[in-house]
Design a protein around this nucleic acid. Structure first.
Lengths: 151, 151
DNA sequence: CTTGATGCAAATAGTTTGCAGGCTC
DNA sequence: GAGCCTGCAAACTATTTGCATCAAG
C-alpha cells in the first residue's frame, strides 16, 4: 500500500479502541499521525512529523498535528519525551525503555535496562507520594559525533 | 545582611573563580542570580527567579536573568532541569542526585540513589558513544496532591 | 444530521537578540 | 579608559486558540 506506513494491525486496533472508549473520533489525520509515529524510531518533534506527513497528506496542518499529539498523549497512546531542547519530542508508547541523548546532534536512542526497572527505590521516596514512572536519561555524545570531533 | 541571600563562602568563591577562568566579569546581577539559585531548593524557572530577585533588585530585567542562566550553565555552575513543562527550570550544580516530579503541581524534588550512580550500564550502551551523565527522573503524584484528590 | 475535528489565521508563552549606555577590571 | 554586561524593546520560535467549515458516526 504505497503512501501509507505499514504497522501491525493490533496497534491500530489499540488506537481505535482507545479513541472509542474516550468518545473520540477516528479521523484520517489521527490515524496517519499515529501510524507515522509508531513507525518512527527517532522521537520526532511535531514539526518533523508534520513535514513527513505532508508528503502523503499535503493538506494536513501543523496545528492538527499538535492537537492530535496532545490528544493521543492524554490517552496514553504516545509519550512526550523529556529533553533539554525547546522543541517537544514524541514517541509511541511501547515496552519499558530509557533514553540516550546526544548533546551534540540531539539524537535520541532507546535502550533497555531491566535491572533498573526491577530495582527497589530508596526508602525515602515512598514518603514523597505515588510513583508512576521511573525513567533513566543518559546524556553523552554519540559515536557519530565523537568521530566528528577529531580532537 | 538583609536584602541578600546567605550562602556558604566557598560556593561564591567557586563562582568567582569559574567566571575569571572564562574571562567573564563578576557583576552584581550575576552574583545575586547565582546566590538566589543556590539558596532555592525548588528548581525555579527564569520567570520565578526574576520575580524573587526583583524584590531585592527592582531594576533587574528578565532577559538578564535568561542571559545569566545561560552563561552559568555554560560554565557548569548550574544545570537546566529536564521536565515536560514548557518553561525551563534550573538548579545550582551540587552533588549527584535525581529528580522526582509531580505531574499534578509540577513540583520537583531531589533524591539520592547511590546504587544507581554506581551501577554498571548495560553492555550495548558502550557502543553508542561517550556517556557523561546518568539521570533518573521519576514521575508521580506528590503526597500533597494525592490528599487533594480525595477520590 | 449532529457534533466533534480540521484548517486557517491570529494570538500567546517563553526565550533570544540588537543596540546604546553603564559598570567591571 | 576599553570592552563586556545590562536594560529596553523588538524579534523569534514553539505552541495554542477562535472560528467557520467539514466529515465521522
Amino acid at each position: 500500500m504505497p503512501g501509507t506506513v505499514n504497522i501491525p494491525g493490533e496497534i491500530l486496533a489499540a488506537l481505535e479502541e482507545a479513541l472509542k472508549a474516550a468518545g473520540l473520533r477516528l479521523t484520517h489525520q489521527r490515524l496517519e499521525i499515529y501510524r507515522e509515529l509508531v513507525a518512527a524510531c527517532d522521537h520526532p518533534s511535531a514539526e518533523t512529523l508534520h513535514q513527513r506527513l505532508r508528503k502523503r497528506i499535503p493538506t494536513l496542518s501543523l496545528d492538527t498535528v499538535y492537537r492530535t499529539l496532545a490528544t493521543l498523549a492524554e490517552q496514553g497512546l504516545i509519550n512526550r519525551v523529556e529533553t533539554l531542547e525547546s522543541q517537544a519530542r514524541f514517541e509511541a508508547t511501547s515496552r519499558r525503555h530509557h533514553h540516550l541523548i546526544c548533546r551534540k546532534c540531539g539524537k535520541i536512542a532507546d535502550f533497555q535496562w531491566p535491572d533498573i526497572d526491577s530495582a527497589a527505590l530508596p526508602q525515602e521516596i515512598s514518603e514523597w507520594g505515588r510513583i508512576d514512572l521511573k525513567n533513566v536519561v543518559i546524556h553523552g555524545i554519540c559515536r557519530n559525533c565523537l568521530e566528528g570531533e577529531e580532537k
